[in-house]
Amino acid sequence: MKIDTLGVQAFVAIADQGSFKGAAERLHITQTAITQRLQKLEDFLGVPLIERTTRSMNLTETGRTFLPQARRLLAELSAALVEIRETGMAQRGDVSIACVPTVGVQYLPRVLQAYSARYPHNRIRILDHASSAVAHAVLHREVEFGIKIAGEHHPELQTAPLVEDSYVLVCHRDHPLARRRRIAWRALSDYPLILAGDVSGNRSLIDAALEGSGIELHSFYEVQRSSTALGLVAQGVGAAVVPGLAIQKDAYPSVRAIELIEPAITRALVLVTRRTASLSPAAQALYDMLLGQAASERAAQPRGR
């Protein structure tokens, strides 16, 4: 059944304005057009909605009953159209993303604050996974896009560079190395360490970077998340190697972060999407803001860095 929205709109305007002339002015059309729209609606319904004479105009009993329903119909239609339009403008919508846990400590929150200020009605669902699981979630459409460690990936996925992140040593302020500003990886061989397990993409990246150097790290404790390592360090359990982004400012006042050199090992974080994916407007807006943040940070870095 085809709903005559123009006829309903004309009927409500006539009832509200009390005249065909007033309704025509309100809708910016001619009186003839208003009359034709009402007549078409009445013909469709098979009953008159308005009694009109040369001197007066009144709603019929059916018209009085139908009026509140007609107003509600137009209000619901208007709200639905506004919602669709705002969704297309990224002003409304839910976004699902996946990311390695350390991204959620300090990097992602900065962008999310700006995003929420611009799109306050949008909800964001975040799955914090190991790097390989982030790729899996994107590939299998569990999320719209992800943030993972750069590396080999499925041919159906594509990546865009986001940020470079250096690995650092974290230790308790009472640790023998706590006063150092930087330390060579080789010097860590003398200390029991808290290191990432094999599931973490960080472990494989560090092992690959140190391969052939003769440097051997002693993993006394093995964890899957940098947040766990930081908690252990804060209690004086040992020293740990974690990505710099894992350290939240002022979260652990007793923990010191020391630059690791010889070699300086970094990881590249990338945005990952499916090659054939068309992101929702809300997700595309967040994706673009992350790229914009990355570009701004790269531009702010000293030349030659």
Rank of each mutant, 00 (worst) to 15 (best):
R305W: 01
Q36V: 06
A75Y: 09
I124Y: 08
L188E: 06
D16W: 10
V134N: 03
I3W: 09
A196G: 09
A160E: 13
E216S: 12
G18W: 02
A24M: 15
G236Q: 06
S56G: 06
P68C: 01
A300C: 04
G88C: 03
Q235D: 12
P48V: 03
A98Q: 15
V100D: 14
E164V: 12
E216I: 14
T228Y: 13
L139Y: 05
L177H: 13
G201V: 10
D43G: 05
P161M: 01
I149F: 01
Q17W: 08
V105K: 15
A178K: 15
L127I: 08
A117L: 13
A79E: 04
I29Q: 05
S116P: 08
V241R: 02
A75W: 10
T54F: 02
S131N: 11
A33K: 01
A150M: 05
Y191A: 05
I50L: 05
L279G: 02
K249Q: 01
M1Q: 11
L6E: 07
A70D: 13
R298M: 02
G93W: 14
I261N: 11
A264W: 08
G151Y: 07
R275Q: 06
H28P: 09
L27R: 15
Q39P: 01
N202G: 14
S19G: 09
E216H: 10
A114P: 01
T5F: 03
A160L: 04
P161K: 00
D174L: 04
